[in-house]
Structures are given as C-alpha cells and as structure tokens.
C-alpha cells in the first residue's frame, strides 16, 4: 500500500534533515503507529505521503503510484483516494457538517442522490447524523474531529493518514476517535497514525509500531 525507499527530506535553511534515509513497507490492511517525540519528522512523513511536500531523495509509492512521477494535476486524484485527518480538524467553519463531509465527494464529482446517501452513512458511522445541519464551528472539539473523520471516510479510502488525531482532545474523546479509526481498519482500510502519545498504542491490538527519532526510523 505504501512503500518508501531511501527517503530523505531537507527543508531549506535547516542543517539537519527532517527525514533521513527512511525505508518502509506498509502492506494493505495494516494499522501502523508512527511514534516519536515532537520534531522527530512524523508530520513531514505524512505530508510526503499525500503529496503536500516532495522528498529530497528516495522514492515513495502510494497505492501503486510513484509520487515522484505525479504531475501537479495528478496530486488531487491521489488525495481523493486517501482519507487524511489532522490534529486541528481542518473543517470549513462556516459550512454545515453535512457540507464539510460532502466536500470530499463533490471534489471527486459524486452527484446528488449518491452523495446524500454516502454523506449520511459516514455521519452515522461517527454518530453525528443528528448534527448534519449544524454549522461546523458550533461543534465541540470532539464532534469536530468526528466530522473530520466522517469526511475522511465518506469516499471509503483504502488508506487513512492521521496526524495526532486526538492531540487536541480530552481522553474520552480521544478514545472515541481511536475507536472510529479501529472500526475503519476493521472494514479493511490501511491506517497510518502519527502520535507522540504512547498511551494510544495499547488501544489497538496487533498494530505495528515504527518509531522516528530525529528523522531516522527504528522499528520495535
């Protein structure tokens, strides 16, 4: 599903690389924790996977596509096959929960009836169907993250990338979010979850753990 080979990432005006010769193979259906302290390179790792940054060296394959060979036009198509979840939710504050979730389908050209059905299903999965018409910025943090997860799940992506998805949430909501990701994994999705919080690791049975330390990858 995801293959990295000798991947390094240098940011301009930084002496040390954010990622240093990272190689990794994530087979389909795996749940991978990417751990490591803040500044270890976790966010950089994920940004490379959804085409928000380019590696300085090495090759990255996501779902069969070589990211180094994608044209700028193909990046959006890649992203439509992924579900990405962020620490700060990244919802459109003035739109309804429904519209936020629908966005992921609209950009892919999904139309009318199909769209309503799929949005409603995704909202049911995260338990937000009763808040579909609420404006996104009127929701609590936990509800916002569930809406964001619904958006990431709406088009049933084979790969889910989550960057500190529970970082802004209290323990109860964090647990809720983890349950939703585990459920998505159980339905067949590959999940890569970046977190600096070791407490999360115990919440997923049989998960693989890879640790980043100053840009270098160590598996445990």
């Amino acid at each position: 599903m995801v293959i990295l080979h000798g991947v390094s990432k240098h940011y301009p005006q930084r002496r040390r690389p954010a990622l240093d010769d990272v190689s990794l193979h994530v087979p389909p259906g795996q749940f991978l924790f990417l751990t490591g302290p803040s500044g270890a390179g976790k966010t950089t790792f994920l940004r490379l996977l959804f085409g928000a940054a380019l590696p300085s060296a090495g090759t990255i394959r996501v779902g069969g596509a070589d990211l180094g060979r994608l044209s700028p036009r193909q990046i959006p198509r890649l992203r439509r096959k992924l579900g990405v979840i962020f620490q700060d939710f990244k919802l459109m504050p003035r739109l309804s929960v429904f519209e936020n979730v629908a966005l992921a389908l609209r950009v892919a050209g999904v139309k009318s009836r199909d769209l309503v059905e799929r949005v409603e299903r995704a909202l049911r999965q995260v338990g937000l169907d009763h808040l579909a018409e609420a404006q996104a910025d009127s929701l609590s943090g936990g509800e916002q993250q569930r809406a964001a997860i619904a958006r990431a799940l709406a088009h049933q992506p084979a790969l889910i990338l989550a960057d500190e998805p529970s970082g802004n949430l209290d323990p109860r909501n964090a647990l809720e979010v983890m349950k939703l990701l585990v459920a998505a994994h159980a339905r067949g999705a590959t999940v890569i979850l970046a977190t600096h919080d070791p407490a999360l690791l115990d919440m997923v049975h049989g998960a693989r753990v890879a640790k980043l330390e100053a840009g270098r990858l160590e598996e445990s």
């Binding site: 036009r73 959006p76 890649l78 992203r79 439509r80 992924l82 966005l103 950009v107 958006r151």
Partner: peptide
Amino acid sequence: DDLEIMALVGASLGY
C-alpha cells in the same frame, strides 16, 4: 484556509 482544506481533500485547481 478554506482553499487549503479543499486542496487537501483532493479538489482540482479548476474546482
């Protein structure tokens, strides 16, 4: 901010 979100969920430049 809105454009960033659109880009992240895969909106094309045209969209």
